[in-house]
């Protein structure tokens, strides 16, 4: 079991790894882990495991996301992903869902109104 901030940082790292392959253009990232967002936006670096993940994120970010931002949102505004992450715990491998899965359908519907 890893620390919460390490897990959240790995989350951002894999998101950045994946999203630039989709070649969608400008993408902004939002997450509710304040510590990770602050680390990404600061120039301070450290040599811990967490610090290494963050510097990897920064490297990807400067390479592929020139006009993008990483921003903090309150947990209440990040509900869809919270549910997705919980659902992901019970999956054996990673999945890309094109259609909206049941577990977040109602949340997305409310948010997109």
């Amino acid at each position: 079991m890893c620390d919460v901030h390490v897990g959240e940082a790995l989350d951002l790292l894999s998101a950045m790894d994946w999203v630039h392959l989709l070649q969608l253009g400008t993408v902004d990232f939002e997450m509710d882990a304040k510590r990770v967002v602050d680390s990404i936006n600061s120039c301070h670096s450290d040599d811990t495991e967490y610090g290494n993940i963050i510097s990897n994120c920064k490297a990807l970010f400067s390479q592929f996301y020139e006009n993008s931002r990483v921003e903090f949102v309150w947990r209440q505004a990040n509900e869809a992903d919270h549910s997705l992450a919980k659902a992901a715990l019970s999956l054996t491998s990673s999945q890309i869902l094109v259609n909206i899965p049941n577990c977040i359908e109602h949340i997305l519907f409310n948010e997109m109104q």
Binding site: V4, E8, A15, V19, T26, N78, A85
Partner: peptide, 15 residues
């Protein structure tokens, strides 16, 4: 013209 990517992690102690 922009996309938004929301991300979050969940942790399970039991598994």
């Amino acid at each position: 013209g922009r996309f938004k990517c929301n991300i979050d992690a969940a942790f399970s102690e039991t598994t």
